[in-house]
Amino acid sequence: MEPNRRTLVVDDSRVIRTIVSRALTELGFQPEEAGNGREALERLKQGLLPVVVMIDWNMPELNGLEMVQAVRANPDWEDVRLVMITSENELDRVQTALMAGADEYIMKPFTKEMIQEKLNLLGVPIPAAAAPAA
């Protein structure tokens, strides 16, 4: 079976969305984008079922933490991996995000390799890599 390559990037900064999306594209994924948590939830409700969602913390309308809580409240989305990618870099923030149901956490600034390494940790197959990165 063809592995699921769909991903969703949620950030209110278009620039950041573009950078994250480009990294995911280079890793072989098909990223879609949303400008805040509410938009992202709508995409999920419409049936977009991504392998992983990359989520900023501070966004208008519905922030990243609230979005994580909303996704985790719906068992249909249980298998979707949620990665916070944010400039919030205090320990209690990481803890809060994990308790809300985030699977991983990346602090900005980030690199493509960091994203890849975190996805490896989560066991998400990287389409562009036949074998794990050397």
């Binding site: 320990l91 985030a102 991983e104 980030f110 940790l121």
Partner: peptide, 20 residues
Amino acid sequence: TQFEINRGLPARLLVQFFEK
């Protein structure tokens, strides 16, 4: 550094075994 803990370290272990 933040760069180093961002690389490959599961967030759960960061919370459990590190302090700022």
